[in-house]
Nucleic acid binder design. Sequence first.
DNA 1: GCATGATCATGC
DNA 2: GCATGATCATGC
Length: 461
Amino acid sequence: MKKGRLYNRQEIEIISKSAIGKTINDILNEELITIENNNTSNKGGLGQLVEQYLFGIQTNSDSEPDFMLAGIELKVTPYKKLKNGKLSAKERLVLNIIDYMNEYKNEFRTSHFWFKNNTIQLLWYLWEPNKDNKDLKITHEKLLELANNEDLKQIEEDWNYIIKKIKDGKAHEISEADTMYLGACPKGANAESLREQPFSDIPAMQRAFCFKNSYMTQLVRKYIGNYADVEKILKSTEDSFTEFVNNIICKYRGKTQKELMKDFNIDSTAKNINSMLVSRMFNVKSKLGETEEFQKANIIPKTIRIEENGRIRESISFPAFKFTDIVEQDWETCDLREELETTKYMFFIFKKEKDDYVFKGIKLWNMPEMDIETSVMEMWKKTYNTIKSGNIVRYIKDGKRKTNFVGMSENEVCHVRPHGRDSRDTVKLPVADKLTGATEYTKHCFWINNNYIKEIFKEYL
DNA sequence: GCATGATCATGC
DNA sequence: GCATGATCATGC
């Protein structure tokens, strides 16, 4: 007899561990249950089956944790293997719906979020493409206790940020990109699922608290994958991630490039000297963007130089792409769109003053949805067509090849340009170039236009 | 002066 | 040897 919601902590642990290595079908077979294959389209279906047949919990939308006696919430969540072999969360972890009308009255520790989610029993299953949902296997489990979690400070800060927006009458302006680990994601049938907010007449999109995809990805890598080589920047739990970053910025703001080079004992003419200085500020050996905290928050650090006249001379590069990868993707699921929609950029600003660049501070930014769905989409689709049709080179003059790739005068947000060691640094083309017959071409990447990015730094001009 | 093609130094 | 962040060089 399954006790459902009345299990105690120890029983939950035993049952969770017993599920490891089993598929949903295995669990159903043990219960002698067959279910028609008609609910695979139901997004919550898999988690519900586990709740129902492993633990005996009926689907509920209760405000209490699933296991009410133990105070534990159950979550069944997928992860996947990326092409490069790394593991990643397949989805964000959606938690309770935000009750705009009441949650703001609480403190973090007395909030409904805390009441329901402070202890979560995670069951991870490995998602694989082209496989029936019920053949997917549960591989790992983990009891996530927020009370003694290293990320608690940041999670609390994120919660407070969301609550402040409600208190400011701006629930309709909440975005998942506002926060670091704990987000507020859309939750409803569609964008028209609106509800009232307490300090404004404007209806706000229904949202739920969630652990963001990037945060879940780090948990996956920590508890499932090989985690040993990830460097941390936070050495204690006394500061949140954002507090820690702000302390570093304050410490170095106002220093010049030359002063910093002297401080850190660096003598170099590298083009990425400012990026090297930033890594030193954080006392990071390798790359700041690859540290645990930046990965969890899905933040990519970039340095920006502003000239004395306010001009930003250079555009911002992305890693080089493979021509063969582009033609295998479509816009809806392509790498570029995913990156722009989920990534925040932390710009470290260096402004030129008297023959030296002064470190001015940072700016967090993510590209507005509207720009992604218009200009970036147009550029990506044209890039796709250019490669697919083999129409890369337009003409050659003085040994330099003019291409048909989207240039910066053609698109106000982004463009395509070479990015390699030199012009002989090439990768394979899926279709030979019609004009030159080349089967390989100089590595290229997407760039964000310097004039577009300039708008973000108005306050520093 | 700017857009575009090309290239550099670093770290692993 | 290679990927990467970033800047250089040149012709229109």
